[in-house]
Nucleic acid binder design. Structure first.
Lengths: 228, 228
DNA sequence: GAAGAGTGTCACATAACTGTCGCGGCCTTC
DNA sequence: GAAGGCCGCGACAGTTATGTGACACTCTTC
């Protein structure tokens, strides 16, 4: 099976060049012209590698990166970020968000292809596991399932992302604003109290005979997952 | 010596908020209301960190950033840029100009404080740790937890901040006024005796079989945490 | 296009926390 | 050893923060 590479890039000059070169390297290639399209296509068929422009219409590359890492079908999806100019802090931010590599435009095609090969060859030691267990709760991002003490639990998308985020940082307290920023996305305007409601729903879903509330309320600070 | 943070921000609502929170985190803080003032103040005393609004009267934030990097006394002066929400290209330019980090307005205060800590820690390692232990008491500001001899202790928000402040300066005596200024904030008017009550509550919460009182009363001077 | 699921807000009840008082004890200072 | 300042602490009434059911909408799904 050929590796499937998704290119998210709005400048057709660049994407055409990539398409050409990647096909020549014998990859399956698809192109998304904006962030929205990219997200849809990722959802449709998970790529083996994502070439992601930093600035994309509709949904920015960094936002896509974040979402893929946070909630994607495969949070370990390798990502190479493309950005306009090389700047150390750009690089830091990109890598911070979870990109595996970083290439500045204009780039040398052969070098980029080398990096693509390198990333695909590499087996990334799971910074983000496919499954996490905290206490008696288990979350499986690949199967998109949650269970507590073995019992399956159904969560809505938002509750899932919320729990997912908590599970990545057990014990840590997040303010409503932080949660809105990361779980909802920094580009949405939602009341802070809405977080309360979703935490409530998450609690309700996780509620279980004899089990204690896994989510800790820290008054005037926010919420945290009980670390155990 | 406390880290010195200069806030360059023309909206007083924002700068006041920052002032309040930064002081609470025990930094030396100064505010510049426009770009010119900011440059002068930087010249006068080089800050350890610059919180810089993107758009400033007289001299723009980006210009300041550039000048500091090009000609400043300390070209490595850490800079966190504040920008209005959603100006992606601004971010790029900001980072391009050499800002170390950027934060979009409106921002989560706790997150900003976390970034401030992060940036300052790079400069001065050992500053504002996430966890502090003094004697048999431990405080974890990330998880927002307190324990004594391993036993969890619940504190209300004010008691938590109070203890947090004490833990940062074990042994040091603080007057009621100092505590009001830093723990409560210089902008609220509260009776000095109120401090007594909260210290009392903190003591009560920390009280433990066989354990001695970790807080020392210094008659007609204030309170201090026993250093050990 | 109807049913169902999922969302964001509100309003209201409740729980948690606050700031002040006031009384009584302790310590200092004459 | 008496007066007075200083402090500990229980009580309390006022605030503020949080939990939750209800509701109107929006999207999917069939």
């Amino acid at each position: 099976m050929k590796p499937y590479v998704l290119v998210a890039e709005d400048e057709s000059a660049v994407s055409e060049l990539l398409l050409y070169n990647l096909k020549r390297e014998d990859y399956d290639v698809a192109i998304a012209a904006d962030g929205e399209e990219a997200l849809m296509m990722i959802d449709e068929r998970t790529p083996d590698l994502l070439l992601l422009d930093w600035m994309l219409p509709k949904v920015s590359g960094i936002e896509i990166c974040r979402r893929v890492r946070a909630t994607g079908v495969n949070p370990n999806l390798p990502i190479i970020m493309l950005t306009a100019r090389g700047e150390e802090s750009d690089r830091i931010r990109g890598l911070d968000t979870g990109a595996d590599d970083y290439v500045t435009k204009p780039f040398s095609t052969t070098e980029l292809m080398a990096r693509v090969r390198a990333v695909l060859r590499r087996i990334r030691p799971g910074l983000k596991e496919d499954r996490i267990t905290v206490g008696d709760i288990e979350i499986d991002r690949v199967a998109h399932r949650v269970s507590r003490n073995g019992a399956d639990i159904h969560l809505g998308p938002t509750e899932f992302r919320l729990l997912d985020y908590f599970m990545q940082h057990p014990g840590r307290v997040f303010s409503r604003e932080q949660l809105l920023d990361t779980v909802w996305g920094s580009d949405v305007y939602v009341e802070a109290r809405t977080v309360d409601v979703h935490v409530g729903r998450l609690r309700k879903a996780l509620r279980q005979e004899g089990g204690e509330d896994p989510i800790r309320t820290v008054r005037s600070a926010g919420y945290a997952l009980r670390a155990d």
